[in-house]
Write a protein that binds this DNA or RNA. Structure first.
Lengths: 211, 211, 211, 211
DNA sequence: TATGAATGAGGATTCATTCAT
DNA sequence: CATGAATGAATCCTCATTCAT
C-alpha cells in the first residue's frame, strides 16, 4: 500500500523523462478520465473496472499507479487544481487593471455550468472529507491557494488605488465563501442558478465590497 | 453531545405532535438516528443493519417503513428541514425588529459547528443530487422555503424602514449563497471556519448589503 | 465485523431452539462441508463461493453466519474438535481396563488415513497459526483437552495398577508429540506411513513408556 | 536476529563454493531471503514484489531465475535442507561416541525456537503438499535423508556396543515422528513447548528406546 | 407490525506472470 | 541479465432488498 504511493510519485516524475512503452496509459489521462466520469455519472458510479474500460486498460493498471481508489481521487483533485493554480498564476502575472483582474478571478473560480467536472469532484469529495484526514488537508491547501492569490489581487489593487479595501484577508474570505455557495448551486442546478447568474451576483457583491 | 440535547428536545415535540401513532414516532426516531449516524460516521458508513442496531430493531423493519434507503435519506432530509421550517415560521411570527429578525435568521441557517448533523446530511446528499431527480426537487423545494422566508423578512424590514433594500429576491439569493458557502466550510472544518466566525462574516455582509 | 461474530454465536444457541426456515442451511452443514472441501482440495482452493455452491446456498449466506473466512475456519476447527472431545469423554466414562482405554485413545487421535479431513484442517491451520492469535489460542485449548484427558487415563491406570507411570504430565506430552508426528506423516502420506503402521508404532512406544 | 547471524555464515560458505557465478549467489540470496520472509510473516504474506523489495531487485527478476512461485518455494525447501544434509554428513563423519552423535542429531533436527525459519517453511509447505506432487516427492526425499542417516547412526552405535537396538528402521522412524511432533509444537509455540523442553523430552525417549 | 434468514450482484484490491526494452 | 509496466483473473466481503413467518 505504502510502496504503491511511492511508485505513483516516482512515476509522475518519470512521465516526462521516459516513455518507454507507447501502450502505456498516462496517469494524466487516467485522472482526466476519472474526473469526466465522475462529472457524468457521479462518484458512486465510478468503478475501477468501469474507468479502466473507458481508458482501454485494466483495473489493475490504474491501481498499479495510484494504489487505491481513495488515492486516485485525491490525485484527481490535486491534478485538477494544479492546473487551475497555474492559470491563477498566469492571471496574477498579467498586466491588467486590478478590477479587471478580480473579475477574471471570479470567472476562473465559478463552474462553467451545471455538472462542471471540477466542481462535481469537489462536491463528491466533500462527502468524504469528514472521514479522510488526508483529503481534508489537501482541500485546505487548495483553498489556501485561492485565498492567498485573492488577497494578493486585492492588496495590489489597493496599492494602485483601484480597489478600496479594509481587511483584505476577511474580504477575500467572504468573497470566496460567496463564490463557493454560488458554485455549489450552479453545479448542482439548484434554484435555477446559472453560471451567468452567479457571475453577475458575484460581480455585484464584489463591487459593493470593494468600493 | 450536541445531538443528544437536540434529540431530547425533538422527542418531546414529536411525542406531543403525533401521540396517536406509535409507528409515526418510530419513524421519527429512525430518521433522527439516521441523521445522527450520518453526522458521526458519514453516509458511506450508514448501513441499514447498522442503523437497525442503533435503533434496537431490524433492517427489514426500517425498509418496511421507508421502502428503500434512498427514500429513507429523502425522508431524513425532509424531516430535518420541516422542523427548521417550523422554527422559521415561529421566527417570522415573532414581534422583533426586522434587523434583529434577520440576525436570528442567520443564526438559524448556519450550522452549530463542525459535523452539524443537518449540514452533514446536506453535504452528503449533494453528492447524490446529480443522479437523483426526486432528491433535487426536494432540495429545490427546501431551498425555496428559505429563500421565500428571507425575502419576506427583507420586505417587511423595508416596509418598516429598518432595512434598505433594492431587489429583495436578488439580495436574498446572494445572502443565501454566502450563507451556504460559509456553512459548507464550517461543517467541513475547512479553512478554520467556525460558527462564530461565519456568523460574524454573515453579519458584516448583511450590514453592507442592507445599508 | 464484530456484530457478525455476535450473530454467529447467537445463531449457534438458537439452532436447537428455532428452525423457522426449512430452506435454512444449518451452520453445521457449512462447517462439515468446509472441512470436507479442505480435505479434498486444500484450504488454498477453498473459496466462499465454491463452498456456497457445494451447499446450494450463497456465499453471502455463509458470511452472514460466520462473518469472515477466518472465523469460518476457526469455527470448523472447533466444531470438529468438539465432537472428538465428546468422544473422548465417552471413552473416559467407559468401563474398560486402562490399557485398553489407552489403546482406544490412540485410535481416536490418529487420522483415519491419508487426507483425513480433521487432520487436513489441522495442517492447513498450522500455516495460519503464526499470524493469528485467536487461532493459536483455540489450538492451545484443544490441545490441552487431549493432554488433560490423556493424563487422566494414565493416572487412573496407575491407580488400578494396570499402568506404571512416573510423571504423567511428561509422559502424556511425549505420547501426544509422537502421535502428532505420526499423524502428520500419515495424513500427508509422507514416508509411506499408514494409519495401521502409525498405530502399531504408537502402541509399541506406549508399551515401552508405561512398562 | 538469529537469521542475520546465520545469513552471514551462509554467505561465506556460498561465496567460496560458487565463486564462478554471481547469478548463483543471487539465487542463494533469494532463497535465503524468501525463507526469512516466510518465517517472519508467513507464506500467505510472501509476494513476489515484496520479496523483490527485500532483495533490492524486481519481481520479474526472481521469476527469471525460478520460473514460478511454486518452484521458488520448492527450491527454498531444497536449499534449506541441502545445507542441513551437509551438516548431518559432517556429523556422521565426526569421531565421537554414538550416543553423543545421536544427541547432536537431535539438536540438529529440532528447531532453534519459535518461528525457526526452516521449520516455518516446512509447516507452510505441508499445507501445499496435498495438491502438489512435486512437492511431496521432494519432502519424501528429504525425509528419507534424515531417516537413512539416523539409521546409520543407530547401526554404528550398535556395532560399537554403545546403543542397544532391535529394529533400527522402526526405531529411527519412531524417533523421527516424535521429533517432528515436538518440532511442530515448538515452532508454533503450542503448549508452551520450547526447544530445551523438546530436547529434554527427545533425550528421555531416546534413552528409553535404545537402552 | 416486526423479524432476520437468505440472497446475489457488485466492487475494490491483490498478485503471479508476461514481455518489451 | 534485469527491469517494471501491464495484465486480468480471482477472491473476499458488503449490503440493500426480499420474503416467509
Amino acid at each position: 500500500m505504502r510502496e504503491r504511493v511511492g511508485r505513483a510519485v516516482e512515476r509522475r516524475v518519470s512521465v516526462v523523462a521516459t516513455r518507454r512503452s507507447d501502450g502505456r496509459i498516462a496517469q494524466d489521462r487516467m485522472l482526466e478520465e476519472a474526473i469526466a466520469a465522475i462529472a457524468e455519472h457521479g462518484l458512486a458510479k465510478l468503478t475501477m473496472s468501469g474507468l479502466a474500460e473507458r481508458l482501454g486498460t485494466s483495473g489493475g493498471h490504474i491501481l498499479y499507479y495510484f494504489g487505491s481508489k481513495d488515492q486516485l481521487l485525491l490525485a484527481a483533485l490535486r491534478w485538477s487544481e494544479d492546473r487551475l493554480a497555474e492559470e491563477r498564476a498566469r492571471l496574477l502575472a498579467r498586466r491588467v487593471p486590478a478590477d479587471r483582474k478580480l473579475d477574471l478571478f471570479l470567472g476562473l473560480y465559478l463552474p462553467a455550468g451545471p455538472r462542471d467536472p471540477r466542481w462535481m469532484l469537489w462536491v463528491e469529495l466533500w462527502a468524504r472529507t469528514a472521514g479522510n484526514a488526508e483529503l481534508r488537508v489537501a482541500q485546505d491547501e487548495i483553498d489556501r491557494g485561492w485565498q492567498d492569490d485573492l488577497v494578493t489581487v486585492l492588496v495590489r489593487g489597493a496599492d494602485k488605488g483601484v480597489l478600496v479595501i479594509d481587511d483584505p484577508v476577511a474580504e477575500a474570505s467572504e468573497l470566496l465563501a460567496l463564490l463557493e455557495g454560488l458554485s455549489t448551486r450552479t453545479v448542482l442546478g439548484l434554484g435555477g442558478t446559472t453560471r451567468d447568474g452567479a457571475l453577475a451576483m458575484a460581480r455585484r457583491a464584489t463591487g459593493r465590497l470593494l468600493r
